[in-house]
C-alpha cells in the first residue's frame, strides 16, 4: 500500500498534480454557483425595489 502511494519516488509530484486539479475543479464549480446565486439575488432585489416604488 505504501509503495502504491509513493509512485516510485514521484509521489509528491503526481499527487500534487491530481490535488491541484481537484482544487481547480472545485473552484470552478463553487465560483459558478456563487455567481449564479448572486445574479438571482440581484435580480430579485431589483424587482422588489421596482414593486415598492410603483
Amino acid at each position: 500500500m505504501n509503495g502504491m502511494f509513493a509512485m516510485g519516488g514521484y509521489g509528491a509530484y503526481v499527487w500534487s498534480c491530481f490535488g491541484i486539479t481537484l482544487i481547480v475543479l472545485v473552484i470552478c464549480v463553487v465560483q459558478g454557483r456563487v455567481r449564479h446565486n448572486r445574479t438571482l439575488k440581484d435580480i430579485s432585489a431589483r424587482l422588489r425595489a421596482m414593486e415598492t416604488k410603483s
Binding site: 509512485m7 516510485g8 519516488g9 514521484y10 509530484y13 503526481v14 498534480c17 491530481f18
Partner: peptide
C-alpha cells in the same frame, strides 16, 4: 519516466 508519467492523466 517511471510513475511521473501519470501526471499526463490530468495534464
Amino acid at each position: 519516466q517511471g510513475d511521473a508519467f501519470r501526471i499526463i492523466y490530468v495534464h
